[in-house]
């Protein structure tokens, strides 16, 4: 087995190499899963408590802002979006931090660096899955049988996670050189939250008395389609469905994914010079 290192080396998406480091991927993920709630009294309950608190806060907010639905319905309406958003936002943050939190390993050992964001992603998914299964049981025992549209759920989750992974990877790469990203990211996520139909429905926003260009901008947000698609799996109706904006969302997602992976690989070999 010959290995050549030159100054002009470019990383490529080397799947066989990634596979060879499968063990490392497994143990890094295992580490993060088992460490996440170490030394907490509540342990994994936290992955359920956090969305519950958010549902409570934003259920009340929604009731105050949008009086078209009753008090209890407000909570039901925000719950699914909040649970999903929990996954999306932690994916963005954790993937984005994956390089800097593992800087000590990066600078001492060689391995394909893509393993780090990938294992963060896995950890977010595991965390989500536990909370989500409990949520599903609670939700449908309260609301009755789920609609047939629930079968789209895995697809929608995958779709959302891909976009968030792309965003996270982009900011992870950029933050190696520019730590500014770490400070901007929370605001970015906060803006995304309010610009997505999580606690206020698309219908409510689009019926508001605001300039038309804001409404266009709002619908260009790929998360609007993703969150509405998620709600579609729960409530059976697709709010504000529009083929053009669905396509826009898909194109943005694909672009972000390809661009972020390319940017990451281009820059991978110089991480250790900056981190």
């Amino acid at each position: 087995m010959k290995t050549v290192i030159t100054s002009t080396d470019k990383s490529l998406l080397n799947i066989p190499e990634l596979k060879r480091y499968g063990g490392l991927f497994r143990y890094l993920s295992l580490r993060d899963v088992s460490v996440r709630y170490k030394q907490t009294k509540m342990g994994f309950a936290w992955s359920i408590i956090r969305p519950v608190i958010n549902i409570f806060i934003f259920g009340i907010l929604r009731y105050l802002v949008d009086r078209s639905s009753g008090f209890v319905e407000s909570f039901v309406a925000v719950s699914s979006g909040i649970v999903f958003w929990q996954l999306l936002s932690t994916t963005i943050t954790d993937v984005s931090n994956s390089l800097s939190t593992n800087a000590n390993i990066l600078t001492k050992v060689y391995f394909p660096k893509l393993i780090l964001p990938l294992s963060s992603l896995l950890v977010c998914l595991v965390d989500f899955l536990i909370a989500f299964i409990i949520f599903l049981i609670l939700f449908f025992s309260f609301k009755g049988l789920p609609p047939w549209q629930i079968i789209f759920l895995p697809m929608v989750v995958t779709y959302g996670v891909i976009l968030c992974f792309g965003i996270g990877l982009l900011s992870a790469t950029a933050s190696v050189k520019f730590r500014d990203v770490k400070f901007i990211l929370p605001f970015f996520i906060q803006i995304l939250f309010y610009a997505s139909p999580i606690f206020l429905s698309s219908e409510f926003i689009l019926s508001m008395n605001i300039p038309a260009w804001i409404k266009v901008l709002y619908q260009l947000n790929p998360f609007v389609f993703i969150i509405n698609a998620f709600k579609f799996c729960f409530y059976g109706t697709f709010e504000n469905y529009n083929v053009t904006y669905a396509m826009v969302s898909a194109v943005i997602t694909l672009f972000v994914l390809i661009f972020s992976v390319k940017y990451f690989l281009n820059f991978e070999k110089s991480f250790t010079d900056y981190i």
Partner: peptide, 22 residues
């Protein structure tokens, strides 16, 4: 660090044979 692939060299070339651990 360059030999073990952690840091990328600015110039030059390295070739080695076999499994390396650092």
């Amino acid at each position: 660090k360059i030999l073990s692939g952690i840091v990328k060299p600015t110039s030059g070339r390295i070739e080695y044979d076999g499994k390396m651990a650092s």
